[in-house]
């Protein structure tokens, strides 16, 4: 692994530069990491080792493609929000978070006028399909259920990966 002392002194640590460079994505070519390492002025091996470390530390959640679900026909994308008894919410979240048609599942705080504490994103190609999935979810929720509603996305105004500007941590 090359030593950072062999590079010119920069204000930004190399980890930060790697995060920034990765936010631009990787090329779909034979050696995607090599291309990125050249852009950063480091060895490919150093980049691979540092990325492995970021994966191990949980800074990077995954490496791979993000399909454009909307372009692939998943036109019905619903944010289903649930009001679940506080004592039951963790068990319910763990159960429905595992279902393959739920892409994200989070607990969030209730607010005045907003009783919902569990959020699950459900995707499908027709309204009937997603309605069927929500019915199934209702069965998983069980006794802790107090209410739910589904918010269909009517338009995507902006969809980007998590973007940080250089200097933000």
């Amino acid at each position: 692994m090359s030593d950072s002392a062999s590079r010119p002194e920069t204000a930004e640590p190399i980890e930060r530069q790697i995060v920034t460079a990765l936010q631009g994505g990787l090329p779909i070519t034979r050696h995607p990491y090599r291309q990125l390492s050249q852009q950063l002025g480091i060895d490919e091996d150093e980049l691979l080792q540092r990325m492995q470390q970021m994966l191990d530390e949980g800074i990077i959640r995954r490496i791979g493609v993000v399909p454009n679900h909307y372009a692939l026909g998943y036109r019905y994308n619903l944010m289903v929000v649930w009001d679940i008894e506080d004592t039951a919410v963790d068990a319910v979240g763990a159960a429905i978070g595992e279902l393959d048609y739920v892409s994200h599942c989070y607990r969030r705080p209730r607010q005045p006028g907003w009783p919902y504490n569990l959020f699950a994103m459900v995707h499908g190609k027709s309204r009937d399909e997603v309605d069927g999935k929500i019915e199934q979810l209702r069965e998983y929720v069980g006794a802790g259920y107090r209410g739910h509603t589904a918010l269909k996305s009517s338009r995507i105004l902006k969809k980007t990966g998590l973007r940080l500007r250089p200097g933000e941590t």
Binding site: L22, L26, V65, G161, L162
Partner: peptide, 29 residues
């Protein structure tokens, strides 16, 4: 594999290829 993925990317079937970062590790959201 490369040819098909490049075609799919051109056609708009791929939003991005790369690393997905964990929220709230590199900042707050």
């Amino acid at each position: 594999v490369l040819a098909r993925l490049q075609e799919l990317e051109q056609a708009g079937a791929i939003s991005r290829f790369g690393a997905v970062f964990t929220p709230n590790v590199a900042g707050a959201s």
